[in-house]
């Protein structure tokens, strides 16, 4: 159904909402990706089960039953499925970055945009960062335990926001105000 919508009007709308200002397609897509990554992946899949923070900076207790796919993990006696889900969610994000579809065909992505800006170093760093996060995940048998996974995830956010966003002139916030 998504594909249908996309090949219909959505694609045209996406392309017509050009530029990089806040509210443009590119800006919205990248900013939503960051929310997805920071909140849904980092906090919900990792932060909450290991007991990082609740709302308003209140510490919460670790609760391993809050991992994704808890009952499957319980049934199988390991967290392989949970970790696979985590990995897959980050792979989706990388696909978007690379412009790859689910079949693995590489089309135009942000990596190509960076190349056109002659910023291949940023591209290489982003790819290396994805690889680093995968190896962090692959090296674990459980979400819980130490917090290296939780601490390692944000490096990609830093890279996105300080280098990718800068190159593309995408802002992560826009004041309800004039600028000068």
């Amino acid at each position: 159904m998504l594909v249908e919508q996309w090949t219909g009007s959505l694609q045209t709308n996406f392309v017509n909402n050009g530029g990089t200002a806040l509210g443009s397609s590119v800006s919205t897509q990248l900013n939503e990706t960051m929310v997805y990554y920071e909140v849904h992946i980092r906090e919900n899949k990792v932060g909450i089960p290991i007991g990082r923070l609740g709302p308003n900076d209140t510490p919460i207790e670790a609760d391993p039953t809050l991992i994704e796919g808890y009952y499957q993990a319980l049934a199988e006696g390991n967290e392989d499925f949970t970790l696979a889900l985590l990995r897959a969610s980050i792979e989706e994000m990388e696909d978007l970055y690379l412009g790859e579809n689910s079949a693995g065909t590489d089309a135009q992505g942000y990596d190509d945009v960076l190349a056109s800006f002659e910023q291949t170093a940023v591209d290489e760093d982003v790819k290396a960062q994805f690889a680093a996060i995968y190896s962090l995940i692959d090296g674990r048998s459980s979400i819980s335990g130490d917090d290296t996974l939780y601490q390692g995830i944000p490096a990609l956010v830093t890279l996105y926001k300080s280098d990718l966003f800068s190159t593309l002139n995408v802002q992560d916030a826009d004041g309800a105000n004039d600028g000068d």
């Binding site: 990082r52 923070l53 709302p55 308003n56 900076d57 510490p59 992560d172 916030a173 826009d174 004041g175 309800a176 105000n177």
Partner: peptide, 14 residues
Amino acid sequence: RQHEVRQEAYLTPF
């Protein structure tokens, strides 16, 4: 114990 301050709890995006 240390934690990252949730800036969004205090500040607007701008």
